[in-house]
Amino acid sequence: MSAAAMSAAAVTAAAVTDGAEQERVERCVRQVLGAVRVTGGRALHGGLYNSARLVELADGRRLVLKAAPPADAPALTHEQGLLGTETLFHRLAAPTGAPVPAVLHHEPAGPENSGEWLLLGYLDGATWDELRNELTPEHRAALRRELGAAAARIATATGPRFGYPQPVPGLQGTDWPEAFTGMLQAVLADAARFDVPLPAPADTLAGLPERFAEALADVRRPALVHFDAWEGNLVVTRDPEGGPRLGGLIDGERAFFGDPLAELVGLDPLGTPEGDPDLMAGYRSVTPALATDSPSARARLALYRIYLALVMRVESAPRGYAPDHTAWLLSWSADRVTEQLAVLAALDR
């Protein structure tokens, strides 16, 4: 085949793909909104599991259509029905006053629908991560206060039980020690399944919930936790004077019901946000009594940092990250786990 013919074939294949995608988008949107006209849209990048697409309608509305990967795509144990989890998160968070997208429709996978999808309202703005170099220290401090208040509001929502909301065996519990034990055991099993080396002996890691069961038992209410509200999942908009404001928290697909302190770990996986005075001032403007420096709180924060580091480490295998990023992630997560095990050892003397 000539180069010209190969190029023409590629264009034709792309057109067929684009046409099928456009038909799918229009079918989903019309199922929810009726006879509306889709006039444009584009893929939204940044998500690592579900795909997302901006959808523009003739009446000026903009929406987000999210779709789950194929059911046989490699995934961690807790990565099942994540769009259902995101739906639940947004619906529970919205009444608390936290800024989140409106849920228009969630369609689970089923006999007449091969793929799970979710239709959301679109939040105008750009992600905090995208605007990083434009934010002054004053802007960042104000945004951190807003973020702290939003995190506290989210934590006022209460779930029916502890753990992940999707019905995956072993990921829930009647109390937080039981649920967290199951969550940690699942990611350790995922490490074995995907042949990802652990940064500490498996027995040591698996025994942490029992070793610190008393601290975990201090959590008596299954609070809603986003657990992935890092700066790439925060939308920043502009106030009437042009200053940046927190426009919303997106991608609530990693949410679970558990300890409000876990939210602090998810807000900044690489740092220690409980030491950020602006973030904590915002949080305590809603929930003044949050304790972060008691032995119990410090133990739980260390446990959640270990858990998140393991999740980030193990997911590198099914995600197929670039070699450089995988190497950094393996090195960082090993250091993080070692650091937090030392914190726990000091508390356990």
Score class of each variant (00 low, 15 high):
residue 49 Y to D: 13
residue 43 A to I: 06
residue 52 A to W: 00
residue 37 R to A: 13
residue 62 R to Q: 14
residue 57 L to N: 06
residue 35 A to V: 05
residue 46 G to R: 04
residue 39 T to Q: 02
residue 51 S to H: 04
residue 38 V to R: 05
residue 57 L to F: 07
residue 53 R to E: 15
residue 43 A to F: 03
residue 36 V to A: 12
residue 54 L to N: 13
residue 48 L to M: 15
residue 55 V to Y: 02
residue 36 V to T: 07
residue 35 A to P: 14
residue 40 G to Y: 01
residue 44 L to G: 10
residue 39 T to C: 14
residue 61 R to G: 13
residue 32 V to Q: 01
residue 53 R to Y: 04
residue 50 N to Y: 01
residue 58 A to V: 04
residue 32 V to L: 01
residue 43 A to G: 14
residue 41 G to I: 01
residue 49 Y to Q: 14
residue 53 R to C: 09
residue 53 R to T: 13
residue 45 H to T: 15
residue 56 E to R: 12
residue 35 A to G: 08
residue 63 L to S: 05
residue 63 L to E: 09
residue 43 A to M: 10
residue 59 D to F: 08
residue 53 R to D: 05
residue 63 L to H: 06
residue 45 H to K: 13
residue 41 G to T: 09
residue 39 T to H: 01
residue 34 G to H: 12
residue 55 V to L: 06
residue 47 G to H: 03
residue 42 R to F: 02
residue 51 S to I: 06
residue 56 E to L: 12
residue 36 V to P: 00
residue 63 L to W: 05
residue 51 S to G: 15
residue 37 R to K: 12
residue 33 L to A: 09
residue 33 L to T: 03
residue 57 L to C: 11
residue 50 N to Q: 10
residue 50 N to C: 14
residue 37 R to G: 01
residue 37 R to W: 00
residue 63 L to F: 05
residue 48 L to C: 12
residue 47 G to F: 02
residue 62 R to F: 09
residue 39 T to S: 10
residue 42 R to M: 02
residue 45 H to Q: 15
residue 45 H to V: 15
residue 35 A to T: 10
residue 49 Y to H: 12
residue 32 V to E: 04
residue 56 E to D: 15
residue 62 R to Y: 04
residue 47 G to Q: 05
residue 52 A to E: 08
residue 42 R to S: 15
residue 54 L to C: 11
residue 57 L to Y: 01
residue 59 D to V: 03
residue 54 L to M: 13
residue 63 L to R: 01
residue 43 A to W: 03
